[in-house]
Computed example of a mutant assay.
Amino acid sequence: MDTDRQRSVWNRYAPTYDRQIAFFERVQFTGGREWLGARARGRVLEVAIGTGRSLPFYPADVDLTGVDLSPEMLAIARRRAAEEGRAVALVEGDAERLPVDDASFDTVVCALSLCSIPDPAAAVAEMRRVLVPGGRLLLLDHVASTWPPVRAAQWLLERVTIRTAGEHFTRRQLPLVEAAGFEVVEVERLKAGTVERIHAIHPNRVHTE
Rank of each mutant, 00 (worst) to 15 (best):
residue 161 T to E: 05
residue 181 G to R: 13
residue 73 M to D: 02
residue 128 R to L: 13
residue 189 R to Q: 10
residue 6 Q to N: 09
residue 68 D to G: 04
residue 189 R to N: 14
residue 30 T to Y: 13
residue 19 R to P: 06
residue 170 T to Y: 10
residue 200 A to E: 00
residue 34 E to F: 01
residue 4 D to V: 09
residue 161 T to R: 06
residue 203 P to E: 05
residue 32 G to R: 02
residue 55 L to H: 05
residue 74 L to K: 05
residue 178 E to P: 05
residue 31 G to W: 00
residue 204 N to P: 08
residue 141 D to Q: 04
residue 108 V to E: 02
residue 202 H to N: 13
residue 55 L to V: 04
residue 80 R to S: 07
residue 113 S to E: 00
residue 87 A to V: 15
residue 45 L to Q: 02
residue 78 R to D: 11
residue 148 P to S: 08
residue 72 E to L: 03
residue 65 T to E: 07
residue 57 F to K: 06
residue 79 R to Q: 10
residue 57 F to T: 07
residue 98 L to V: 05
residue 4 D to K: 14
residue 144 A to V: 15
residue 187 V to K: 06
residue 182 F to K: 04
residue 50 G to C: 01
residue 9 V to K: 01
residue 66 G to A: 06
residue 136 R to E: 09
residue 185 V to F: 02
residue 113 S to T: 03
residue 57 F to N: 03
residue 199 H to E: 14
residue 108 V to I: 09
residue 1 M to K: 04
residue 106 D to Y: 09
residue 165 A to H: 11
residue 159 R to Q: 15
residue 52 G to T: 11
residue 125 A to T: 14
residue 30 T to D: 11
residue 92 E to W: 01
residue 13 Y to T: 03
residue 209 E to K: 10
residue 16 T to G: 07
residue 128 R to S: 03
residue 65 T to L: 00
residue 176 L to W: 12
residue 39 R to F: 10
residue 33 R to K: 14
residue 186 E to A: 14
residue 83 E to W: 12
residue 52 G to L: 05
residue 46 E to Q: 02
residue 119 D to A: 11
residue 62 V to W: 01
residue 2 D to T: 12
residue 153 A to Q: 13
residue 107 T to K: 00
residue 10 W to A: 07
residue 194 T to S: 10
residue 167 E to P: 01
residue 207 H to C: 10
residue 178 E to H: 12
residue 156 L to F: 13
residue 109 V to T: 03
residue 124 V to M: 08
residue 74 L to F: 11
residue 101 D to R: 11
residue 49 I to G: 01
residue 137 L to T: 08
residue 59 P to M: 12
residue 109 V to F: 06
residue 2 D to W: 02
residue 198 I to C: 05
residue 63 D to K: 12
residue 153 A to S: 07
residue 17 Y to C: 01
residue 142 H to D: 04
residue 122 A to P: 09
residue 31 G to E: 01
residue 196 E to S: 09
residue 75 A to C: 00
residue 56 P to Q: 07
residue 190 L to N: 14
residue 194 T to A: 05
residue 109 V to A: 07
residue 85 G to W: 10
residue 154 Q to M: 04
residue 138 L to D: 07
residue 110 C to Y: 00
residue 118 P to R: 00
residue 144 A to E: 11
residue 165 A to R: 14
residue 19 R to K: 09
residue 38 A to M: 04
residue 93 G to W: 08
residue 146 T to K: 03
residue 27 V to K: 05
residue 159 R to S: 12
residue 194 T to G: 08
residue 149 P to F: 10
residue 164 T to N: 07
residue 60 A to V: 12
residue 102 D to Y: 06
residue 99 P to K: 10
residue 163 R to H: 14
residue 50 G to W: 03
residue 42 G to P: 02
residue 100 V to F: 15
residue 76 I to H: 10
residue 163 R to L: 09
residue 60 A to Y: 11
residue 4 D to M: 12
residue 204 N to W: 15
residue 34 E to H: 04
residue 127 M to S: 06
residue 146 T to S: 15
residue 114 L to R: 02
residue 98 L to W: 12
residue 208 T to I: 15
residue 203 P to G: 08
residue 101 D to E: 14
residue 125 A to R: 15
residue 133 P to E: 11
residue 145 S to P: 12
residue 97 R to N: 12
residue 68 D to W: 05
residue 75 A to Q: 10
residue 175 P to F: 06
residue 22 A to C: 10
residue 41 R to S: 02
residue 41 R to P: 00
residue 94 D to K: 02
residue 178 E to W: 11
